[in-house]
Simulated scan of single mutants.
Amino acid sequence: MSSLILRHEPGAAGSEIYRVWSGDERVGTIRREDVHAATYWPWHITGLIETGERTIGPSGRASSREEAMEQFRSAFVRLLAVPHHRPGDYPYRKG
């Protein structure tokens, strides 16, 4: 498996949105979300399960970007261990 790389996505002023890449394939997103006095880092893996109307994958929420990346990596590795979830077997979102 290729290593997972975070790439900051420029957006609105002050936004922190990172796309997660495995090689040249975009496989998910980690972003900062400020809610009241707390900061959360929601993450989700994209392009894993086709439901007919939308593509969904595992997701979670952490208290730091580093923790979100570790949770993301752990979930991604578990999914790749399942025979039908290998790179190339499902649509990735490129961009």
Rank of each mutant, 00 (worst) to 15 (best):
1 M>Y: 12
2 S>I: 08
2 S>Q: 14
3 S>E: 09
3 S>F: 01
4 L>H: 11
4 L>G: 10
5 I>Q: 14
6 L>Q: 07
6 L>Y: 06
7 R>M: 15
8 H>E: 15
8 H>V: 06
8 H>T: 10
9 E>Y: 06
9 E>P: 00
9 E>V: 15
9 E>A: 13
9 E>K: 14
10 P>L: 08
10 P>A: 10
11 G>N: 06
11 G>E: 06
11 G>P: 09
11 G>K: 09
12 A>K: 15
13 A>I: 14
14 G>V: 10
14 G>F: 05
16 E>N: 00
16 E>W: 00
19 R>G: 00
20 V>H: 07
20 V>F: 09
21 W>D: 06
21 W>N: 10
21 W>G: 08
22 S>H: 13
22 S>Y: 11
22 S>M: 14
22 S>N: 14
24 D>G: 06
24 D>V: 06
24 D>Q: 10
25 E>R: 00
25 E>A: 01
26 R>D: 00
26 R>G: 01
26 R>V: 02
27 V>L: 05
28 G>V: 05
28 G>T: 02
29 T>H: 03
30 I>G: 00
30 I>A: 02
32 R>E: 11
33 E>S: 08
33 E>H: 01
34 D>I: 12
34 D>M: 04
35 V>N: 04
36 H>W: 00
37 A>N: 01
38 A>Q: 02
38 A>W: 00
38 A>R: 02
39 T>K: 04
40 Y>Q: 08
41 W>M: 12
41 W>D: 10
42 P>S: 03
42 P>H: 00
42 P>T: 00
43 W>Y: 07
43 W>F: 13
44 H>I: 02
45 I>A: 02
45 I>T: 00
45 I>V: 05
47 G>K: 07
47 G>L: 09
48 L>C: 11
49 I>F: 11
49 I>V: 13
49 I>S: 01
50 E>S: 13
51 T>Y: 03
52 G>Y: 03
52 G>Q: 00
52 G>S: 03
53 E>M: 07
53 E>W: 09
54 R>D: 09
56 I>V: 11
58 P>N: 14
58 P>F: 08
58 P>M: 12
59 S>E: 04
59 S>N: 10
59 S>T: 08
60 G>N: 11
60 G>V: 12
61 R>L: 15
61 R>I: 15
62 A>K: 05
64 S>R: 04
65 R>C: 03
65 R>P: 02
66 E>D: 06
66 E>A: 05
67 E>W: 04
67 E>C: 06
69 M>R: 13
70 E>M: 14
71 Q>C: 11
71 Q>A: 06
72 F>D: 05
72 F>E: 06
74 S>R: 09
75 A>D: 11
76 F>A: 15
78 R>Q: 12
78 R>D: 11
79 L>C: 14
79 L>I: 03
79 L>E: 08
80 L>E: 13
81 A>M: 04
81 A>L: 08
82 V>P: 03
82 V>T: 10
82 V>I: 14
83 P>K: 05
85 H>S: 04
86 R>I: 13
87 P>L: 11
89 D>M: 15
89 D>I: 01
89 D>G: 15
90 Y>D: 08
90 Y>T: 13
90 Y>Q: 15
90 Y>L: 14
91 P>V: 12
92 Y>R: 05
93 R>V: 14
93 R>L: 12
93 R>P: 06
94 K>W: 12
94 K>F: 13
95 G>Q: 11
95 G>F: 10
